[in-house]
Design a protein around this nucleic acid. Structure first.
Lengths: 105, 105
DNA sequence: TTAATATGCAACCTTTTGGTTGCATGTCAA
DNA sequence: TTGACATGCAACCAAAAGGTTGCATATTAA
């Protein structure tokens, strides 16, 4: 569950759309997820594989179908361990910008 | 300030490292930022351009040097507008996973 | 059993990405 | 003024990413 895999998985708009879709309706099959995407089923498969690699999606085979479930934990970890750091530094950064502007004579 | 540009900017480990570096010491020049990177100055320039494109970094030319400043606002927006959505759905997603496991006989 | 359905695997292609090298330009300091 | 220093610009290159097509496999339903 490397943080790098999560960041790279989130970089693609199609994959974020897949997460949105699962967030709206969890447990969808590959076909259902691909229904409203403008690409082939195989392309969606690849995107889902990347999301699973990043542990953002878990899948389970049920008969001839495969259900996909959203796992929000990695997103949470990024929020807490990475984004939190920059949020805490926000005021500092803004004062830096202010100081920078003041130096402009 | 498209969210897509921010996500793609954050996808590369080198660029996250640059943000970390600016977070530790704001206002660094290109040379300073590139000092501890295992790549050429020109490569760092390109990464910084992508960060500036995403509005994560602001730069100002001072004499023959260029100072770089971290802008944490886009990170904050992602945290609030995008990540927040999944955090709110966290319990729902977990109960989905539970229900899925229970169906496994 | 057979046909339809759902997914998997693999080769292939094009574009983007991350990086390099080489040279140009602008600025400071002796 | 001249050399050193900081950065900019552009062409080029290899690898990765995103997508396609074609075929194989497994499961359900008639």
């Amino acid at each position: 569950m490397s943080m790098d895999a999560v960041f790279r998985a989130l970089a693609d708009p199609t994959r974020r759309q897949l997460l949105d879709s699962l967030h709206a309706r969890n447990g969808q099959t590959l076909n259902a997820l691909g229904a409203d995407m403008a690409m082939t089923r195989q392309a969606v498969t690849k995107h889902l594989a990347i999301l699973e690699e990043a542990n953002l999606v878990t899948s389970i085979r049920r008969g001839r179908e495969k259900e996909h479930y959203l796992n929000p934990v990695p997103i949470n970890e990024i929020a807490e361990r990475w984004i939190g750091k920059f949020e805490r530094g926000r005021l500092t950064a803004l004062s830096d910008l202010k100081r920078r502007l003041e130096r402009e004579d």
